[in-house]
Nucleic acid binder design. Structure first.
Length: 265
DNA sequence: AAGCTCCCGGGGAGCATCAA
DNA sequence: TTGATGCTCCCCGGGAGCTT
């Protein structure tokens, strides 16, 4: 994930040809604010505001259908200059910035590179702009050591924390195997699946490889350890579908191979 | 070579909020 | 009331790539 810098993106394409490129959502919205202005596109303030609202909606689209509907509506209601700018610079790469597309990538729920930006801003607060190379190296390593100490502290707190006595044996297995952050992401679904007396999904009766939600019109290809839904693709943590599927098959909910190694202790 | 476009980082102005 | 702080808006200079 990068800013919309052509140089940065070219480097990624050249050096990591198989990698899927993403554009930071925060920076995409920032560029819209900078470029879709009365001064730059010769439009009125009202037209600029209206265009920005549509672009914001596109960026946060939850589904492709919503994206397409918003796009059609937008093209009818905003000035031609904005349509031209958008078509030229953004429409062709919609899979890299609109949320309805980027949520189907392993981004660990990161839609912006603000974590990196935050690190950068902390670095800048420690290392002044016109430092000599020696000063830069000295302060950089002080900074790195402090960050490492902070991380060790966080990890210690996590390991020492004792799980609540209310947790089921299954929950405790997940809790002890995963980082606290990862556990929190699946805890709600885990409890729901264990307490549920029925299964809100139907399965393909031939090979049991597809799961269809009864209440929503959603269908995913599924296995005991993988799913096609955006949560699983994004996080590589067991989703509600996998948990219900394992329950349906009569398997233990917990299994070592359910998690990406980044989430394990 | 010059000009244009797109984007970036940086910084100033103006305004709102909040604590002393 | 005042000064500090944070936010938004806007502008500037510059890099990179493309066109004229």
């Amino acid at each position: 994930m990068t800013d919309k810098s052509a140089t940065e993106r070219d480097v990624v394409s050249t050096e990591l040809p198989g990698a899927k490129k993403l554009i930071c959502l925060f920076h995409a919205l920032q560029i819209f604010q900078r470029e879709v202005t009365p001064a730059k596109l010769n439009i009125t303030t009202e037209q600029s505001k209206c265009s920005l609202q549509y672009l914001n909606k596109l960026a946060h689209s939850k589904s492709e259908a919503y994206y397409n509907a918003t796009l059609n509506e937008m093209k009818e209601n905003i000035p031609q200059a904005v349509v031209t700018y958008f078509s030229k610079n953004w429409e062709q790469i919609k899979h890299e910035w609109a949320k309805c597309f980027t949520k189907y990538t392993t981004n660990f729920f990161n839609f912006t590179n603000n974590r990196l930006e935050s690190l950068n801003s902390k670095l800048k607060s420690v290392i002044s702009t016109y430092s000599t190379f020696d000063e830069f190296i000295e302060k950089l390593f002080i900074f790195v050591n402090i960050k490492r100490t902070e991380q060790k502290n966080e990890y210690s707190k996590m390991v020492l924390k004792v799980p609540s006595k209310d947790l089921s044996t299954t929950n405790v297995m997940f809790y002890n195997h995963l980082t606290y952050y990862a556990y929190k992401n699946i805890a709600k679904d885990l409890v729901e699946v264990q307490l549920s007396t029925s299964i809100p999904y139907t399965f393909n009766s031939d090979d049991l490889t597809t799961i269809r939600c009864i209440t929503k019109n959603e269908m995913f290809v599924i296995s005991e350890t993988t799913c096609q839904c955006s949560f699983f693709i994004s996080m590589h943590l067991p989703c509600k579908h996998i948990l219900y599927y394992r329950k349906y098959l009569g398997h233990e909910l917990f299994c070592d191979s359910l998690f990406n190694s980044r989430w394990t202790r």
